[in-house]
Design a protein around this nucleic acid. Structure first.
Lengths: 171, 171
DNA sequence: TTCTAATCTAATGAC
DNA sequence: GTCATTAGATTAGT
């Protein structure tokens, strides 16, 4: 179980009272405090990775930067398999391509209810042969898109109004 | 902000064809569901809402209690999604973007104590020039993140074990 | 390039 | 407090 991880933290936790100063005084660079790693759950990664499947908790930034550098370095030799490995390394789910019929159903549901509960999402997932997770993400992104379009139209309205005011002044 | 809410509702007004039967339960078009005003305390909202305050603090009731009561009263007329829309109309707190140095301190404190008491939270708030509220929320979300990663790694372990068992059987 | 699936996390409300 | 879910901001694939 995660018992070991938990107890590790509890151990540290168990110390009596901390002031910020004391915490700041701690040498966080000590090896036992660094490289606290976390196994990420990547269900779409089918086989065992060639490398260790570990990301440091807040190492995402450095990791990404490093990967970007490598990407630039090897850009001309960028093969599909290398990209796949990179993708796995970063740990991103492969992009799902919805079919037009799937989109059609999702859009028609969105028109009526842009916040489907778990029951509706599950039903949709079953009908469309997708994970419920994909459905949820789709609705999240769809709502963001709607909101964006509203913002943009509002902006246009304001711009128009201002333009009209200017015309009025010039008359 | 009001613009998006209004057009959200207008969309429903258009009454498109329903594809999933369960959605039919929602009828946001009923007039009695509209124009329900509940003014909440949103100190970060720049201007006062145009309506009168319907809830005032009086007697032994605090604002939250009173709002809860009214919410219960109207619950039968209140669809979940309408309530949500209403809340967003009233306004969320703008998302706080922590600086990397703020995150750094927060993380270093989290490493040794993931449940800081009010005294430490206040001290952190003072140092980081943030509200104590933000600190508390940050720790809540950080704990949730840690827990999630634990769950995920456990799941992965189970998957691995099962895979190993299969390999063993096939030998 | 644009559009959008995916990710991360601050904020919220239910319990 | 946890937990699920949201919005907002971003990253990255087609």
């Amino acid at each position: 179980m995660a018992e070991s991880t938990v107890s590790c933290i509890r151990q540290v936790d168990a110390r009596p009272v901390f002031t910020i100063d004391r915490i700041l005084g701690l040498d966080l660079n000590r090896p036992e405090l660094r490289n606290i790693s976390v196994n990420l759950y990547r269900p779409w990664a089918e086989s065992e990775p060639p490398q260790q499947r570990r990301h440091t908790i807040n190492g995402g930034h450095d990791l990404k930067t490093k990967i970007k550098e490598d990407e630039f370095k090897y850009k001309q030799h960028f093969s599909e398999s290398y990209r796949r490995t990179l993708n796995w390394y970063i740990g991103r789910r492969p992009r799902t391509a919805f079919s037009s019929s799937q989109i059609e159903l999702l859009e028609s549901v969105f028109l009526v209810n842009s916040y489907p509960g778990i029951d509706i999402r599950e039903e949709l997932a079953q009908r469309l042969l997708l994970d419920e997770d994909r459905i949820q993400i789709w609705f999240q992104n769809r709502r963001a898109k709607l909101k964006r379009s509203h913002r943009e139209s509002q902006f246009l309205m304001v711009k128009k109004t201002i333009a009209n005011l200017k015309d009025f002044e010039e008359e």
